[in-house]
Design a protein around this nucleic acid. Structure first.
Lengths: 215, 215
DNA sequence: CTTCACCTTGACCATACGGTCAGGAAACGA
DNA sequence: TCGTTTCCTGACCGTATGGTCAAGGTGAAG
């Protein structure tokens, strides 16, 4: 570690703090605006207002609207990859897939904006993160398919098609974020309560795990 | 008599035809452009080019961009409502829900653009079709919940939460349209073949029907 | 042929947007 | 205190977009 880095760690420094805090505020505002208006409908002015900064200041930290958008999308992808670890080191589908559903449902509740931005990005043909789909996501998917296939071979679940199981997991869990507005409307216009979220998670886990013959 | 003349005689009238044909072409182009670029990213010029008409002509048939968009969204909603009839008059969940999955999966394949437009609309808070959600969709949902509850009471399936079953059906079937690009990327960049679509439908039906204890 | 309703479209306009820039303020090290 | 780097921001610019309009074309009815 360099001397500079040591000093930097001991004394965070006003400068560093300013940059970090402003970038954080901008990314948070951008995530919300991109989610609610889409890339084309979002404006730098609106993001700036929501972040409490002049528009010109945004361009100081993020050169272009695309740069800012790319950062937001990457952020979500990393959160999802982290959640994917729930899958690993599980003795069987009940624990592994159960934990994965729990993790993805929690993210749908805590990061609904990010989920929508991702969905929008993919729906528009993934112009920004196509390389991630072809590398990281593809590798991750193949790995989990192998795990699921192993569970099938070990007789721990029915011989279903692992790929379509993954699609069902993604679709179902992300639906609670992406279509949260529709769900809220069908819930008398009120957001799901803690109890209702627990019920949702339990329902999804029950149907999926029974559907693959794991329970 | 020529074929043209025969067709011409069958046609109700040139005027009506022109309007119908142009509106059809505009709506078809608009559905695609709105799906691929979002409402904010779509431009009337691009829709016009794709429909093969001057931009000013679009505004002759559809006063504003919002009007055109609204028509596109309503069109999809009606298609989905039609598919919902698969649910009715079924003796049990295997036939009713099985047919509904078939119908929704077919729509995901034949109308991927419309599905994306709908998803985008809901994700952005349903600014245009909120009233549909609160009336038609809510009524339809309550009706199907009653049907599912009846099947449960009759012992034809496990006592799962009907509401979350519906969400799972919507999420899973529409995923094949909305996230079609991601699925294609994970399929070596190639669209699903007929065989793969049959496999997808079978997998979804198998997992769902088993998940609710109907098979 | 004339009339009239309907259709077509190039040219145009006001606005809003992404992005730039110059000049100044604030923080920091020496 | 002084010099240097980083940060801040009002004013500005070129462009693209949704929408308008007036003039002209077209076909069917009488």
């Amino acid at each position: 570690m360099s001397v500079d880095a040591q000093i930097s760690r001991l004394k965070p420094g006003r400068r560093t703090d300013i940059r970090r805090e402003n970038e954080r505020a901008i990314l948070e505002a951008a995530e919300k605006v991109f989610a609610e208006a889409g890339f084309g409908g979002a404006t730098m002015q609106l993001i700036a207002d929501m972040a409490g900064l002049p528009k010109a200041n945004l361009h100081y930290y993020f050169a272009t609207k695309e740069d800012l958008y790319r950062r937001v999308v990457q952020q979500i992808f990393e959160i999802w990859l982290d959640a994917a670890s729930s899958f690993d080191n599980a003795p069987g589908p009940v624990e592994g897939i159960g934990a994965y559903i729990d993790a993805k449902m929690d993210i749908s509740r805590t990061h609904p904006h990010g989920s929508k931005v991702w969905a929008s990005e993919v729906m528009h043909g993934a112009p920004v993160i196509q390389d991630y789909l072809e590398t990281t996501l593809r590798d991750w998917t193949e790995g989990r398919i192998a795990v699921i296939q192993r569970w099938i071979n070990e007789g721990k679940m029915q011989p279903i098609n692992p790929r379509h199981l993954l699609y069902m997991l993604w679709a179902t869990t992300q639906h609670y974020a992406d279509f949260g507005h529709q769900i809220q409307t069908l819930n008398d216009g009120k957001p799901l309560t803690d109890k209702q979220w627990r019920e949702a998670k339990a329902s999804v886990k029950d149907m999926v795990l029974r559907g693959i013959g794991a329970i």
